[in-house]
Design a protein around this nucleic acid. Structure first.
Length: 615
DNA sequence: GGGGTATGTCATGAG
DNA sequence: CACTCATGACATACC
């Protein structure tokens, strides 16, 4: 039956490849889940840590409903699985050529075209036409195959043929949006001027208020002063804009475990975006705009990679991300994945598990069984060594197979136990070789290989191993205790064996979780350090702008004071006076030595008060 | 021999 | 109430 499944599965994959070429996307994993996952598992190899990860039951429970609520890795699982699915999809051989086409569009500019216009599809030279045609074909091909050619929005594309506009409306819209943003940025001085006109500094008083006393009425209002006051009123706009990544960082928790891999994570459940698009990676942060990280080190990208990025960020970071992502994919594709990368994937402790493993994957049980303590001392070795001893009682459990064990009670959470590299889905029975080796080692006086409990159980002459006792369903275990003629001490011993075995697995689980928590916290610390650096940079920028503003204010004050006269018609000595900008927008001439007497340049009330005092 | 690490085991509390 | 799981604490083996 397995051969039949394999035959149809391979055929299904081939059909999927063909369908993908004509633009029909088929999620093979969803069809293969539960049917022939070992075939898919070959991606990572039988020794892949995917298999060793004991969290099979997380996916087995579909939505993780049966996962223990205390498990901190549950949150990582779904993201990790999506990531793995995407990586597998990206790295599938069927799409590899298409990916190359995408690279051609992205990287190879027209030789004869302007360097700044590598994507000019409407070139008029012969080569341009050829290249444009090729590009169009590639774009269309990519479109058919579900790929979205990554187009750097920062590259200007002045001449687009009409028929191409429909194909690249989206890209063009992105560029238009960027152009609008740029225009707004360029027109910001105009905006400032507009704001100046509406400033609360009462410029009409500056422009020669009739309420001014005669000596002060000849104040020449300097245009730059007016601008300065307006700018001062809009000081916030002069302060260097907050560092873009800071805004996001301050409102979003740092995602420590995000990395370039996250750039490929998409919400397949909601809407599968085109492949190879550097979309935002985490929808939970999708409303937090983040723009370029500017001078931040590239390592920052990985630290904040979990945050969503807007289009601008995509365009600026795409150059970094896509290369790294594609490199990563290539490594996956070529089967040259650095083991450390897999370990990195295991930050969550879940992502190592293949997303394509079936619910009752035979390999799951087999791997776990094979990797049980003492290697092959588990079920099958016991089956062989005790097969001749099986009596009537054991016959009652004859139909209790490892498959049942897997379906019912296999709670193995073993994380890093060694595994036979050649184990396959059908090798839940440890290889005979390993069994013999263990028997030999046992004979050679190395009983520790099997564990104390295992030997004790064997000493009882029971047709079950300690491994079975630990992992069999509790109903079967209780039935075993009842049917065997065991004294109270033996029953107690078997209960202890079961308890210790389960607790051993639980301890392994617990330690793995603890380590993962440590790794997570370390990543969080790194993210917070990056955020702190951004805050410090922001503070330095602000202080610098404030200093410059104060300096300019002083200069303009001196200029204004030099044009003023006192009641006697004598020019004011700038060194004796200063200008004071009050909160309500009035500008007051203040003697430096005494704050009691104030002379107003603007501000009707103060001037009127002074008028009233004079008579 | 001492320190660090990995692992098994026990006790305990919670589900 | 029995069972399972998580976890701290301790012991032991190993490097």
């Amino acid at each position: 039956m397995h051969h039949m499944k394999k035959y149809f599965t391979e055929g299904l994959i081939q059909l999927t490849i063909l369908l993908s070429l004509i633009g029909v996307r088929v999620d093979v994993d969803s069809y293969l889940n539960g049917y022939f996952s070992p075939l898919i598992e070959a991606d990572g190899g039988p020794s892949s840590a995917f298999i060793q990860t004991p969290f099979h039951h997380y996916r087995d429970t579909a939505a993780g409903h049966q996962v223990h609520p205390k498990c901190p890795e549950l949150d990582y699982f779904f993201t990790s699985r999506r990531l793995l699915d995407e990586v597998r999809a990206l790295g599938s051989p069927a799409r590899f050529p298409t990916r190359v086409s995408a690279w051609l569009v992205h990287l190879v500019p027209d030789d004869n075209a302007d360097i700044g216009e590598p994507n000019n599809l409407s070139g008029d030279s012969g080569n341009d036409e050829i290249n444009a045609e090729n590009l169009r074909e590639e774009v269309e091909n990519d479109h058919r195959t579900g790929l979205s050619v990554y187009q750097d929005p920062t590259i200007p594309r002045p001449g687009c043929a009409t028929e191409e506009l429909s194909k690249e409306d989206t890209l063009q819209n992105q560029e238009d949006e960027e152009a609008e943003v740029k225009d707004q940025a360029e027109n910001s001085p105009a905006l400032l001027n507009t704001l100046t006109q509406s400033s609360a500094l009462e410029p009409e008083d500056l422009l020669g208020s009739s309420t001014l006393p005669p000596p002060l009425s000849d104040v020449v209002v300097l245009p730059q002063w007016q601008d300065f006051l307006s700018e001062f009123d809009n000081f916030d706009s002069m302060v260097p804009q907050p560092i873009p990544d800071l805004e996001g960082d301050l409102t979003n928790p740092i995602s420590y475990d995000a990395s370039l891999r996250d750039a490929m994570v998409t919400r397949r459940d909601i809407c599968r975006p085109p492949l190879f698009r550097l979309e935002s990676t985490n929808s939970s942060h999708s409303d937090q705009p983040q723009s370029s990280l500017g001078a931040l080190p590239s390592s920052l990208f990985s630290l904040s990679g979990n945050s969503s990025r807007n289009e601008t960020t995509q365009s600026r970071m795409g150059g970094y991300l896509d290369e790294a992502v594609f490199e990563h994919i290539n490594m996956l594709d070529l089967g040259t994945v650095d083991p450390q990368m897999l370990l990195d994937d295991s930050d969550s402790g879940l992502s190592l598990e293949s997303g394509t493993r079936s619910t009752a994957s035979p390999s799951t049980s087999s791997d776990s069984l094979c990797e049980e303590e003492g290697g092959a001392t588990g079920y099958s070795s016991e089956v062989e060594s005790f097969s001749s001893k099986v009596g009537a009682c054991a016959a009652a459990y004859r139909d209790w197979s490892p498959v049942d064990l897997n379906e019912h009670i296999w709670h193995d959470h073993t994380y890093s136990l060694p595994q036979d590299q050649n184990s396959t889905s059908s090798c839940w029975v440890p290889p005979l070789k390993s069994i013999k080796q263990e028997v030999m080692s046992e004979d050679e006086g190395e009983p520790e290989e099997m564990g104390r409990d295992e030997h004790r159980v064997q000493a009882l002459g029971l047709p079950f191993s300690a491994f079975q006792i630990v992992n069999m369903p509790v109903e079967d275990f209780l039935e075993l205790l009842d049917r065997q003629d065991l004294v109270e001490s033996q029953v107690s011993f078997l209960r202890d064996v079961r308890r210790r075995g389960k607790n051993k697995l639980a301890a392994q689980n617990c330690r793995k979780r603890k380590l993962d928590a440590i790794v997570s916290l370390q990543g969080e610390v790194e993210g917070l350090m990056v955020q702190r650096d951004a805050v410090l940079r922001q503070r330095a920028h602000t202080a610098k702008a404030l200093s410059a503003m104060a300096e300019r204010f002083e200069e303009l004050s001196q200029t204004v004071l030099s044009h003023l006269q006192d009641e006697c018609g004598q020019p004011l000595r700038p060194e004796n006076y200063t200008l004071h900008c009050s909160a309500n927008g009035r500008v007051v001439v203040q003697p430096r030595t005494s704050r009691t007497s104030r002379t107003t340049v603007t501000g009707g009330k103060t001037a009127k008060r002074k008028k009233d005092k004079k008579p």
